[in-house]
Each structure stands twice: as structure tokens, then as C-alpha cells.
Amino acid sequence: MKTNYREALRMALREALASDPRVFLMGEDVGRYGGSYAVSKGLLDEFGPERVRDTPLSELGFVGAGVGAALGGMRPIVEIMTVNFSLLAMDQIVNGAATLRHMSGGQLHVPLVIRMATGAGRQLAAQHSHSFEGWYAHVPGLRVLAPATLSDARGMLAPALACPDPVILFEHVRLYNLEGELEDDPDAWRCDIRSAAVRRVGDAVTLVAYGGSLLRAMEAAEQLSDEGIEAEVIDLRVLRPLDVAPLLDSVHKTHRAVVVDEGWKSGSLSAEIVARLMEGAFYDLDAPVARVCSEEVPMPYALPLEEAVLPQPAKIVTAVKELMGRK
């Protein structure tokens, strides 16, 4: 069927709410307003206010309540409007959800799913546009996912809810309106939350991306193809724990890699990927691994400035050509 990313997410939410009475959705404006990105529109009417709960603007409080409800036997899905706001709840996520299993010697587990919007591209400036996926991917005890395709938007929620650990799902704001075809057959989108995926096969260079950067990497790959350079594009899908094997396999074939990440470079997920490639594929590399990331400034509002910050396809193309000694 023809659909979009937002609706694919909603289908997954609807299925989860319909199939398991322990599942409920809570967050700011998920009910009457329909979700700040309209993901949960209509679910309040369908499932009622007990299971689609509007919360006060209390990120720390309601994320912590999600942790507690998970401990109490529920399967909460907590929506945080945007990753910048999640910083208000970071204590409950990092000091709480991520530690309880270990700190209790394995007695407790926190089957909580947290969904949040991330990333830039809507001119929302420096308090609504950042990419902090890497901060969460830093933390043992969490699982971090970045659905970048319609089928992952549809398929990732079910295994996330089935997982006994806290899972964070990052939805890039540029993807919500992404349109495309979603197979009616569930086997086409049913997926695991362990592995990276090869989204385009090539032999000249490996582009590593995730979330909102996947589209940019794919676009760059098409431009490169016009010039006879076939890039292999890998979608990380799972940011913690990282599935490194497909990256190593790809670099074994291509001998070059460019990491594309909307996060900043310093102390980042892209730095981690580069390190893993050094550790596991050093002798396969014909050139240093390159990175195309956001410029290290708080996100500016004005369109030309925002565009200049982001890892645009043109920058990726340039980085690949430099790597290959081509103009």
C-alpha cells in the first residue's frame, strides 16, 4: 500500500495497543492534539484516555513514571516531543532505566519503549533540532534504534516492546512525510532489532549512515553512480549495541569508508564507528576513514545557515571523491 513514515509508525502503535492490554502510550499532547508530529492522531478515539495518556509538561516525571510502570508489569510507550526535551528526563533514562537491571543483580528489568523525534531540517533552531542519539548510544543497559525506512517504521516497534530492556526509538523529523510503498505482507517488514542493513550494493566505497542521514547517503550514492562510482550504503538501524560485522564485511570489499552522521564529530557516534573500523578493518583500508557530520555550532535558524550545518549529499560526494583521489 502507498503510505508514509508517520502512518507506518501509527500502524505499529495501533497494532501494539490492540494486541497487548499492557501496552499504553503516554506523552505530551499524544491524545487530543494527536501528537506534535501527528503520529498518534486518532488513537485516543480508538483506545481511550486510559491507554493514550496526555501528560503534563513533565519529561522527568512521566518518563520516570514509564520506568515505574514497566517495573510494575506494564509495557509503556513514552513519547518525548523531541530529543532536546529528553535531556530533562535523562536522569530517569540513564541513572534509572539503564541501571536497574545491573544494580539489582538482575532482579529488575525495565521493558520500556521511549519514542522521540530527532534531527534538523525544519528551521527549528538550537533547542529543537539536535541529534543526541550518540549520547544514548553511549550508555550500557539501553538499546537504541533509528528506523530510517517505512518498513522499519512499521516493523521496529513490536520487537522493541517484546524486548525486556529499555529501548529508545529515534524518529528523524525529516522522515515523517517520507512516502513510499509498504508491503501488505507482514513478513516484508517484520524485522529484528539487532542488525545493520545493506541498503545499496556497491564496490567502490562504503557509506555508513542511519536515521535521517540515510536518505542523504542514498542520494549521494546515486550522484556518485552517475560518475561511475558505486557506493555501498549501510544503514546502522541499531545504534546500540552496534552491529559491526556488516561494516567490516563491506570495507573488506570496498577498502574505503565515509561515515555520515547528523551529530557533531567530537565525542560522537561517528567517532565510534571510525574507531570500530580501525580496530576491525585497518588492513583492509586504502585510505583513512572520512566523516561528514554536522558543523560544530548550535543549530542556526536561517535556512541557508541550517543547510550549511547539515551533512548534505554534495558534501558526501566531495568526501568520497577526495578519498578516491578524484576531482
Partner: peptide, 17 residues
């Protein structure tokens, strides 16, 4: 203060169950 939201969530679970 970290335990307070947990308690609210535990009570929410009890309420919903």
C-alpha cells in the same frame, strides 16, 4: 528525588491493572 517518579509509575501500573 529519583524514586518518586518510579513510585508514580508503579502506582499507575496498579491502577491500570
Amino acid at each position: 528525588g529519583g524514586g518518586l517518579p518510579l513510585a508514580v509509575g508503579l502506582a499507575l501500573a496498579a491502577h491500570m491493572q
